[in-house]
Design a protein around this nucleic acid. Structure first.
Length: 424
RNA sequence: GGAGAGGUGGCGGAGUGGUCUAACGCGCUAGUUUGCUAAACUGGUGAGGGAAGUAAUUCCCUCCGGGGGUUCGAAUCCCCCUCUCUCCGCCA
């Protein structure tokens, strides 16, 4: 959530900033609820204070005296009135919280305006997508692809979008996970192996709830959500804690499978590995001192870009426009890999600065140099999402004999130099 | 899954209806003393929210695992949930 004090004091500025995002909000309604809530809280608290004081006097009275009996009668009605006022205050506070939590984070001034894909600003590019590999074809059209990534078996066992990876492809997936984790470790991210089911409080803290309710798999009997990204359990590790400023920045990474319902986005654009309900991803997460967070965002972006460079895959980095970034995001880069067979860009990483939005919501704070408790800034980045990287490797690295060259950094980890069958 | 015991501040730990403004100890911190360190002594030491003030600050409300209840009044009594420990069962 944003800072309520900032909202009260800079209402117009907040309104203008939120107009840049795609979310419909009614700032005035929130402020009205806030005022109403505060008035009712003041009423309830002064009634309670009065009652407390009267109660204190009672302890000095003899319980058997008439004075005590009289006082009790008086107190009964006082208590009743206090309870009523407290109920009103509680209800109005809940109404406020409900509306307040629907306000998205403010977009950073440095990001471009816009609501469409081509409003995003390309800020970096590596490799060439014009220099066509004449052997490249879409990964799902590669003759041996169906054998290595078995959608039909996955559909039988689970449903669409849950493929089996077989043999060398499975090894390649494992090798990538290993490579990404090794790189993150080398960059100072301490590894987590987190739970992949989370409760509603966690999903709310990181901003998946209420905004993306329908996008997560949910187990009603346990009231647990399957994580859409490792960000959720990893960020919540420090929920409701006050961190020591000397510990900052805290850096963690985690490999997890990720689960997304992707309701309503099934179709031609999502063939093969382009979009799955379950996929593997390595995520990096940081908790930082607020003044450093924009630099830390650049560091995450550079880290993720470095992975693609080492894999030798062409990519571009987009600075996302205000209308295209997520609910809790302030600034976000998307990194897209070039899939030479499909001749399209595939998003393989999203690097985000949530500023203090997530941290305030999640109660992750630190004691600043003045000794005051303040929300940290949280950031995260995919480093990287595996199926689309796999798709890019298969497409971009196809050779004249029909096999695909395994990137050098993965060769030792997998024991493979090439993947697939030689064409007969 | 069954039985029992528990969950109190940063930590240990007392408290079984009003004097809890949570004792006492440890830790941390400021000061005094001191050639330095240590020790001793003295004071301070949480979070969230509300009101007033430019502000430093002051006053108030809430918080003893979570939620609900009883009561004029709950850390304390009742109900539900949850977690930890011990024993038993089951099990990758």
């Amino acid at each position: 959530m944003i800072d309520i004090n900032f909202l009260r004091e800079n209402t117009e500025l907040v309104k203008e900033a939120l107009k840049r995002k795609k979310f419909k909000v009614d700032v005035d309604a929130v402020l009205e609820l806030d005022e109403r809530r505060r008035a009712l809280i003041t009423d309830a608290e002064s009634a309670k204070a009065h009652q407390n004081q009267a109660n204190k006097q009672m302890s000095s009275l003899d319980k058997k005296s008439d004075a005590f009996r009289e006082k009790i009668q008086e107190m009964k009605s006082l208590a009743l009135k206090t309870k009523e006022l407290e109920q009103l205050a509680k209800k109005s506070d809940q109404a406020f919280q409900l509306a307040f939590i629907e306000l998205p984070n403010l977009p950073d001034p440095s990001i471009p305006d816009g609501f469409k894909e081509n409003d995003n600003l390309e800020v970096n590019r590596f490799g060439s997508c014009e220099e066509v590999n004449r052997y490249a074809i879409p990964h799902y059209d590669i003759p041996w692809f169906d054998e290595g990534v078995q959608f039909s078996k996955g559909t039988k066992v689970t449903g669409a979008g849950f493929p089996f990876y077989i043999g060398d492809i499975a090894k390649l997936v494992r090798g990538m996970i290993q490579f990404f984790l090794d790189e993150a470790n080398d960059a100072g991210f301490i590894e987590f192996a987190p739970p992949i089911l989370v409760n509603a409080a966690s999903a709310t803290a990181t901003g998946q709830l209420p905004d993306k309710e329908g996008q997560m798999y949910f187990s009603p009997s346990d009231e647990l959500y399957l994580i859409p990204t490792a960000e959720v359990p990893v960020t919540n590790y420090y929920r409701d804690e006050i961190l020591d400023i000397k510990e900052l920045p805290i850096k963690h990474c985690a490999y997890t499978p990720c689960f997304r319902r992707e309701a309503g986005s099934w179709g031609k654009e999502v063939r093969g590995l382009n979009r799955l309900h379950q996929f593997d991803k390595v995520e990096v997460v940081k908790w930082v001192e607020p003044s450093t967070s924009m630099d830390e965002l650049e560091a995450i972006r550079t880290h993720s870009e470095g992975l693609l460079k080492q894999l030798g895959l062409p990519f571009r980095t987009l600075l996302m426009c205000a209308g295209d970034i997520g609910f809790p995001h302030s600034k976000q880069y998307d990194i897209e890999v070039w899939a030479a067979g499909q001749e399209r860009w595939l998003e393989v990483s999203s690097c985000s600065n949530f500023t203090d939005f997530q941290a305030r919501r999640a109660g992750i704070r630190f004691r600043n140099h003045d000794g005051k408790v303040q929300a940290v800034h949280t950031l995260n980045g995919s480093a990287l999402a595996i199926p689309r990287v796999l798709a890019a490797i298969l497409e971009n690295n196809l050779q004249d004999d029909g096999t695909a060259l395994v990137p050098e950094v993965l060769q030792d980890r997998t024991g493979l130099k090439t993947i697939g069958k030689v064409q007969s």
